[in-house]
Write a protein that binds this DNA or RNA. Structure first.
Lengths: 192, 192
DNA sequence: CGTTCAATTGAACAAGTGCTCAATTCGGTT
DNA sequence: AACCGAATTGAGCACTTGTTCAATTGAACG
């Protein structure tokens, strides 16, 4: 198998493993076992687990945000925001949120992950801010300070997801979606 | 040394270790070394590290919320919320936020921690909701749905803290405080 | 003094981790 | 056919983790 293909295959498998076991519990052996290859092969392509893990998270996060962008493209801003709120809760077992929050937490200890997550956070913010600006334009009434509003929305989603993912939490997916929509209404002149 | 004292001492030391090394990196050996005792002693009082860790987190979280309650007692709701916003950013190296977010993340894997964090989240929510209600009363103008607003504020703080703690993050403590205050203004009839 | 029992020790163990490296396979080139 | 270099192996190393348990201390009590 050629180098580039193997490399991609390893990253894909790493994403699967991380989604399934969680970032903290995923180990190199899980990846090599899932692939049916020797441990040396992994390290031939990725000098360290930290690097593979960071690349896997980067790719997963990128895909996720691209998926949301696609979900929102060409749609009126009002409904676009609605869709984002729905999407947040769409993932049945919240695997993607778990990956996202795990990575955010692990970024305290891992500089590579910190870079990855900073870039991802900025991407998210940019997308949300864009939607809020579009909403203002479509309405004539400008949303004052879309940047700040976007940060609040972004942070709110992360915070709600954190609470949601704690086992037995009082914060249900349904409630989280309601709260997020309330927030959008607050930030957009009470009419999203 | 008597049993009950030792027990408390172990929990205190565990809190120190966890604050310093982070929940994921803290190990039983760190605690026993810091105390200068044998490893068996720790397990004599706490059957497993998971139990000690959960109790340490519970105590730390309880203390933190008690501290905020004290900070806020007898103060007009408006300034109380101001103080909470300041407090959020007060901790220099964010050790307490790190503990809080670590625990929230780890709660996905550890049922004991999940219980602890659920209780803590509810406590936080109750306190914030109380302040928002008080604010409404002090003004005559009732805050509609203080419960929801409190959840949004709570989640926002967690989300902002998450972003803040990523190394090299664009989210500074200063910005986070501004955003939180904006949120309070939004939720309280634009006049906090 | 002798007895008792909780407090305490710390070497040892099993399980798990990331990573190394000499050895092997094998497709492509000369 | 001979060769080369990249792909691949996997046993093994060094390290860390939580936990166990037979052995020891030492204060309290009769």
């Amino acid at each position: 198998m050629s180098g580039e293909d193997r490399r991609k295959q390893i990253v894909e498998t790493a994403i699967d493993v991380i989604l399934q076991k969680g970032l903290a519990q995923a180990a190199t052996r899980d990846v090599t076992r899932a692939l049916g290859v020797g441990s040396g092969l992994l390290h031939h392509y990725f000098p360290s687990w930290a690097e593979l893990r960071a690349e896997a998270v980067r790719l997963a996060a990128t895909r996720e945000i691209e998926a949301v962008k696609a979900l929102v493209e060409g749609v009126p801003a009002c409904e676009a925001l609605e869709r984002v709120a729905d999407w947040m809760v769409d993932d049945e077992d919240m695997q993607h949120w778990r990956l996202w929050l795990n990575a955010l937490d692990e970024a305290h200890r891992d500089d590579l992950l910190a870079e990855v997550m900073n870039a991802a956070l900025l991407d998210w913010h940019r997308m949300i801010a864009g939607l809020l600006v579009r909403l203002g334009e479509e309405r004539g009434a400008t949303t004052s300070n879309a940047d700040d509003a976007a940060w609040r929305v972004t942070a709110l989603m992360d915070g709600l997801a954190s609470a949601m993912l704690v086992k037995g939490s009082a914060m249900t997916a349904r409630t989280a979606r309601v709260l997020l929509k309330q927030q959008l209404r607050l930030d957009c002149g009470r009419q999203v």
